[in-house]
Design a protein around this nucleic acid. Sequence first.
DNA 1: CGGATAGTTGAGTTATCTCAAATGCAGTGG
DNA 2: CCACTGCATTTGAGATAACTCAACTATCCG
Lengths: 254, 254
Amino acid sequence: MPASTPENAKSDSTQGISACSACAFYKLSLCAAVRKKFESAAAPPPAGPTQLTSSLHTIPARRTIYHLREWSDFISVICNGWALSSIVLPDGRRQILSISLSGDIVFSTGLFEPISGRVVEALVEVTYRKFKRSEFKALLFEYPDLFEMFTKIWNEERAQADQLILDLGRRTAVERIARLILNLAERLAERGMMSGQKMGFPFRHRHIADAMGLTPVTVSKMLSELQRTGLIEISSRSLTITDAAELRQVAGPR
Amino acid sequence: MPASTPENAKSDSTQGISACSACAFYKLSLCAAVRKKFESAAAPPPAGPTQLTSSLHTIPARRTIYHLREWSDFISVICNGWALSSIVLPDGRRQILSISLSGDIVFSTGLFEPISGRVVEALVEVTYRKFKRSEFKALLFEYPDLFEMFTKIWNEERAQADQLILDLGRRTAVERIARLILNLAERLAERGMMSGQKMGFPFRHRHIADAMGLTPVTVSKMLSELQRTGLIEISSRSLTITDAAELRQVAGPR
DNA sequence: CGGATAGTTGAGTTATCTCAAATGCAGTGG
DNA sequence: CCACTGCATTTGAGATAACTCAACTATCCG
C-alpha cells in the first residue's frame, strides 16, 4: 500500500492573522467545530508581524497514512471527521493511541521528531488544515496567550494518555469499553456533536479492540452485553446511551 | 496518612542564571547526573533579566506524597534517587505512569493544572530541586534554546507514554518485564549509572506489577523464568543483564 | 444477485489472576 | 546473639477473563 499523497489540497496559503490572533487562529484551524477552551482563550489583538500560512486537505474514509514525513514540518489540525493515530508492530499487533476529533491537533506526539511505526488513519472522511511548524512556533513566542493555550492542550492530551494507561493496565474489558463510550460522548458534547444521548459511532470492532487492548470478538461480546442490559443502543453507525448512570457504574471508579 | 512536608529544605534561593543559561540551569537543576541531551543544548550567554530561584529538598525512601498541592506553583527536578508517579483508584487499583530518575522533571503531566488521584512515591531517598513555575516560564520565553530543549523533553516523555500504552495494550507479561528492564538499563546508562551490565534495581515486585499492569505473583514468576533461563541475575537490589541479545528477543519486536 | 467485509455466537484454550501456604529476610527488642 | 514480628518472595493449585478458532449470519456495495 503506497503512502497517500494529500489530494484536494485547496491551498489558501498566506492568510495573515493580523487582526485577532487566537480568534483568527481558531477560525483558521478549527473550522466549524470548536471546544469551549478555545473560545475562552481570548487574545489581545496586537499587530504581530508573523504571517501564518495554511492549507486545507482531505483524506477519504478508511485511508491509512503511513508515517507522513511532511508532518515533521507541519502541524495538522482536524477540521472535520475522525482520525486515529496508532503504533503498529512488525508482527501485526496494533495499538491505537488516540482518537482525534474536530479541533484536535493530530499527532502532537512526534511534534518535533518523527517516529517510525506511527500510523494515522481516517476513520471517516477527514478534512484537516496544515500549518507550517516554523511559523507556528514563531507565533507562539509572539503571543503568550497562544502559548498558554497550547500548553493547556498539550497537558490535556497527556492527561488523556495517562488515563488510557490506567485503563489498559488496570481495568477490565467492560470497564474499558464503557469508558471509551463515555469519554467519546463527553468530547463530542463539547463540540456540539451529540443529539441528546445519541452520537456518531463509526468504529469497526477492530478499532475499539485496538484502542482498548482487546479482541474484536471480546468487543462484540461486551457491546452485546451492554445492549442486552439496556445501557446503550447501537444502530447504523450510531450509539445511544440509554442509561448513563448505570453505564458510569459499569465504567468503574473515577 | 498526612501529606508529607518537605523536610531538609536547604533553600539556596535567588541564584541568578546570568552567565550561561542552559548550562547554569543544568547545574542548578540536575546536580551531578545529567543526560546527554541536556549537555548538547548549549545556549548563548545573554544577560537575561530573569532570576531563577530554586531550593533543594529531600524525601526519605518509600515515602508517598499524596498530590502535593505546592506542585502547581513549582516545577521539580530529580537530582538523585528514583521516584514513581502513579494514579490510584478509590478501590485500590494502582497504575504507575512513569519512573523518574536523576535529571527528570517530576510530573510534567499536570504541569499547569494539578490532577487529583495522582501520587508520587520515593522508591529510594530522593533529592529534588524546586523551581518557581512563573520564573521558569518567563525564562522559556527569554531563551529560545531553553524552550527548544524543554519541548524535546516533553516530546520524549510523551513518546515514552505511548510506548507504555503499547506495552500494556498489546504485549505479554514476559515482554513487558523484559522491556522494563531494557528500558531502565538504557536510561541508567545515559546517566552513567550502569556498571557494565549491572544496574540498581530497588523495586518491590508490587512496583513492577503496578507499572506493567500485572500482579506481583506473575512478576515473581516471570523474573524467576528470566533468571532460570540465564538472561538476567538478581541479587540484593541489583540486576545484571547476562544475555542482552536474548533478552531483547524476549522483549519482542521493536 | 453475488462477493466481500463485518459482526455474532459457541466451544475450547490459555495467560494471567487469586488464594494460600511455605519460605526467606530485615529490623527490633530482649 | 537470638527469637520475634512484619513484610517480601516463592511456589503450587485452581479459577477466570479474555483469547483463538470456526462456523454462521448480517450488512454493504457494486
